[in-house]
Design a protein around this nucleic acid. Sequence first.
RNA 1: GCGGGUGUAGCUUAGUCCGGUUCAAAGCGCCUUCCUGUCACGAAGGAGAACGCCAGUUCAAAUCUGGUCACCCGCG
Length: 393
Amino acid sequence: MKMKFEILKKSKRSEARLGVIKTAHGVLHTPAFFPVATKAVVKTLTSSDIKKIGFEGILANTYHLHLQPGEKTIKKMGGLHKFMNFQGVIATDSGGFQVFSLGAGIDHKTSKIPTKSEPNRPQGSVGLVKVAEDGVYFKSHLDGSKQFLGPESSIKVQQDLGADIVFAFDQPSSPLDNFTKTQEAMERTHRWATRCLAENEKLVKNQKLKIQNCEQGLFGIIQGGKYKKLREKSAKIIGQMDFEGFGIGGSFGSSYGDSKKNMLDVLNLTIPLLPSEKPRHLLGIGHLEDLEMAIKSGVDLFDCVYPTRMARHNVAITSLGNLDIAKTVFGQDKKPLDPKCQCPTCKNYTRAYLCHLFKAQETTGSRLLTYHNLWFFKQFVDNIRQKVENNKL
RNA sequence: GCGGGUGUAGCUUAGUCCGGUUCAAAGCGCCUUCCUGUCACGAAGGAGAACGCCAGUUCAAAUCUGGUCACCCGCG
């Protein structure tokens, strides 16, 4: 059985819409933000924290879980939901992106896909990742062992994990890639998309999947980088395939050298070409303003490490803007992080205490900030949903 | 009082024996910026020291000599 997506309301002022996704592990109200649980954990939090904050879904990672502890182990332990004790919607990223950004065994310092512009990269290191038609050969960032991931194996891994939302295995491109390279990556992504669909169908038909895994959806991914022509083509081709939803992938955001306007342009170009009755997921985004902008353009789903990573790096995302809580000025500040926030961190602790925890490198500081940031994101998206409900956005 | 040791950035120290473009360096701390499909304890920049003080030897001293002050350890 396939995942169901129902649109409950469409805004009169924009492309924004409210919807509900129904899976074997419960419902998910859209627009929604998935906290990222790369290694089957939202870093510093427990699954019940996530539930308490109110999130209905999270996003885990095929690449990481495949390497450690391995999908076989997780399957044996009853699937990802049981393994990490999260009863909610679990999406798994296909690993395509990570194979390129991590599997190259280089430079963990950069947060993005290898690009030509990074001067410190050893010569030829990009070559550690070998893209072939059957898939990608790469080295594990954990132990350097040789690994392979392709469309079929990625789907197989994700099915073994028991994901509710499965992403097709794609080949992302770097923002610095030229037209030809971007086009090649996109076309391969398209060919792989067909194979992902076929593999998924085969697995479902074989009924090797447990019943609980059946109400899930496979999402195709649109590539095309910064080139409008390619994006348009990708949206048309992927959009016509029999996917349950669509991921818009690639390289967005300022840190990719792409302006926000670029992202908006791509969204406004791409989304109208996708079937309106299916959900759209903007991969790896974003900042608060990005969420609002993208929802207006018709995006239903997001995932991003931003709130959780920022929290670990001492930054609280608040109604007053970003606050680097480890700064000495907060050392004797009796106020809560965000006076307007009702989260347990803000209700129970002062900035001074949080500042101290970070300076003392006590991990509870990361936990309290992560809790707050996610709470803040949840409120933010709920708020947007309310606005859509009232036709105010 | 005698003998020995130590004194280099806010802190902990490297360099001193074999004086001179590895001599003013590192880690931590501090300040600033950053983090958007990977990194929990992360990245990039920056400020900060007339090398205890005084004198001497020398073309040249953190580096050698003498004195002086402070602290530490022994013995009285």
